[in-house]
């Protein structure tokens, strides 16, 4: 290596275009494309709820109830009908999307961040850190989730923020467990030893060399977790410790609608379909993202 070696192509090689690559792979994956469009529409619907909603979601309309006091079926002035309180279901769905998406994304995002950070630390360093973390997760996981949430929210008072925090407080343990186990085996792999023999710092090893191996698991868990978080919120609302009434959330609407299933099925179906679409869209988009980020996927070659 005395004389510098001519390396052709170093300056002329085409730059990488990750965005273009993402777009191309999206065009090849129609379900993912639909999912992402659906998620964008959902987000827009939630953001623009005050503009889009035809009625006030909290108001009881006189014409929203029949003469017998039953909810009005879809059609006419109420596109998706009304609920037993004479409120417009479509408007409530739009406002409910704000609550459900916020909780799904934030509660779960927070849980993912904490879970990954704690899991990596416990798995890589092992020893006492690992023991402490593992026992904490044991304790949290040994409680029935709902009971634990109810207890915590009873203490802290029901509000959207508290629901987010409480769900995150429980869910990080699941991811931490999985990540810890993966890191435990990854740190014994030879490439980690090899990287250590090169004098690379621990932080770089964790984030540059180990984190990429965890991405598929994180994405799968995070997208599944969105669904679970929304469902937990609905259970909490059902028990009266979720998002305080009369504010709408999908879970709450489903639970209300259950009681009138035979007389007014739209009360159950409208929020139910929204929930299913959201959860499915998150999972399919997550699958696509996982494949996109996997450098060993054959499609990219």
């Amino acid at each position: 290596m005395t004389a510098p070696i001519e390396v052709p192509g170093l300056e002329t090689a085409p730059p990488r275009r990750p965005l273009r690559q993402a777009w191309r792979s999206l065009l090849r994956d129609i379900p993912a494309l639909i999912s992402i469009v659906a998620l964008i529409l959902l987000a827009l619907a939630a953001l623009l709820a005050p503009v889009l909603a035809p009625h006030d979601p909290l108001r009881t309309y006189a014409e929203g109830l029949t003469d017998q006091g039953a909810p009005v079926a879809p059609g006419g002035g109420f596109p998706l009908g009304t609920d037993p309180n004479g409120r417009d279901v479509l408007s409530r769905l739009l406002y409910g999307a704000r609550v459900s998406l916020t909780i799904g994304v934030f509660a779960n995002g927070l849980a993912t961040l904490v879970g990954v950070a704690v899991g990596i630390t416990a798995g890589y360093f092992g020893g006492r850190v690992d023991t402490v973390v593992s026992r904490i997760t044991d304790v949290v996981m040994s409680f029935p989730i709902l009971l634990f949430c109810v207890a915590l929210i009873t203490v802290t008072g029901p509000s959207q923020r508290n629901v987010v925090l409480v769900i995150a407080l429980i869910y990080w343990t699941y991811l931490a467990r999985i990540i810890r186990g993966m890191v435990l085996s990854l740190r014994e792999r030879e490439f980690v030893t090899a990287t250590r023999t090169l004098g690379v710092s621990t932080v770089r090893i964790l984030f540059r060399h180990i984190l990429p191996h965890l991405v598929p698991a994180i994405i799968v868990y995070a997208t599944l977790g969105v669904a679970s978080s929304i469902l937990i919120e609905s259970s909490l609302s059902f028990l009266g410790v979720g998002v305080p009434v009369p504010e709408a959330s999908w879970g709450q609407m489903i639970d209300d609608g259950r009681k009138y299933y035979e007389a007014a099925p739209w009360l159950l179906f409208a929020p139910g379909v929204c929930l299913i679409v959201t959860v499915l869209a998150f999972n399919l988009a997550g699958d696509w993202l996982r494949d996109l980020l996997d450098p060993t996927a054959p499609e990219r070659r």
Partner: peptide
């Protein structure tokens, strides 16, 4: 950390596992 890699380095047996695949 300053010593390893700069002054002393190692080559491992199996190059399939000593390079990070990702």
């Amino acid at each position: 950390r300053r010593w390893r890699g700069a002054q002393a380095a190692m080559v491992f047996q199996d190059p399939l596992s000593s390079l990070n695949p990702l």
